[in-house]
Design a protein around this nucleic acid. Structure first.
Lengths: 184, 184
DNA sequence: GTCTATAACGAGATAGAC
DNA sequence: GTCTATCTCGTTATAGAC
């Protein structure tokens, strides 16, 4: 039964995060307000404060959830994709939220700053492992230490997202990303 | 006479831009207010509106001046540095303002958006020329079309600035930049 | 060219009823 | 859990005196 089953409508708290996440990615953390979320969700600003006492807590929950999902996605890549190069291709499709938060870093609440740093550190560690594995099995050239390559790759991909943003051009991002990976 | 000559104290209008430029680079365009500038300059917020009617006009003047200075610096590089690789090293030292504006793009006044796009386009054109020259005289490898290399280099450098920001680590940026250029 | 004073608005946030 | 009502603050901006 229940042949017309819909995906369970998420509870309010997570729907708030869904909307906030989209707004952060397009306008930055300082570029949206409680009013934006409330309007879109059809409830009042006051109700938002029931779920998240303040915008800092909302932002922290946001980035914690994002980091957890990201870590899970990385695990899935590790479990299902063998080749280093293919792993990197899959990785490119994940990256999103933290670039814009890096740009806003100086104006973010403390808890969010720490989470942003942690996110980059985790990404770098994961990338380093992939580059090491790729160098060992010969699928990637290794002209430099894997840790340096990981830093450059992360920087390059975040930058490609950043620059592609004004052009509103996903293709621009994808080809820059492809070029970066091809150079490894 | 005038042995103790100081650099002529800039007029108010340009001192406003000086302060605003520094604030944009650290906090983003939406991360500072007229009050910040007024406080630092020792005048009132109202006086700022005499020089720049609104924040959008201030932002536009800011980026126009920045782009002009940047173009002049590029000309100087072209005039004084022969090698493609050395040109790129000098270029890395210039880059600064526009990365953070790219991140904020969706929330910028229209006039600023256009200027941001123009800035990236100009940079890409200049880089493309340098890469072509370097390929012709053999000082740079040319594994891909110069225009693609220019896009990747610009993205990579802006990204390196972006990611280095939370770590407050100029060395991190410099080594990423060196690595990018070395890969050419 | 700079000031005081104030307008007009939007932001995040709180109290208390339902 | 959501509402109405209100508060406080910071923001951009304007009017008009000096």
């Amino acid at each position: 039964m229940a042949t017309t089953e819909q995906p369970a409508p998420a509870n309010t708290a997570s729907r708030i995060l869904d909307i906030a996440e989209r707004l952060v990615q397009t306008r930055g953390f300082n570029g949206f307000s409680y009013a934006d979320i409330a309007g879109e969700l059809g409830i009042t600003k006051a109700s938002l404060h029931y779920h998240y006492p303040g915008k800092a807590e909302l932002g922290e929950s946001l980035i914690v959830r994002y980091a957890a999902r990201f870590a899970e996605a990385l695990r899935r890549i590790d479990d299902t994709i063998p080749g280093a190069r293919d792993k990197l291709d899959a990785y490119v499709g994940l990256l999103c939220l933290c670039g814009i938060l890096a740009a806003e870093y100086q104006t973010l609440p403390d808890a969010m700053r720490a989470a942003v740093i942690r996110f980059f550190d985790d990404n770098e560690a994961w990338l380093t492992n992939v580059l090491i594995a790729g160098a060992q099995d010969g699928t990637l050239r290794s002209h430099r230490p894997a840790a340096d390559g990981a830093k450059m790759l992360l920087s390059g991909l975040e930058g490609a997202m950043l620059v592609a943003r004004p052009y509103d051009d996903l293709q621009r991002f994808q080809s820059a990303a492809d070029g970066l990976i091809a150079s490894l």
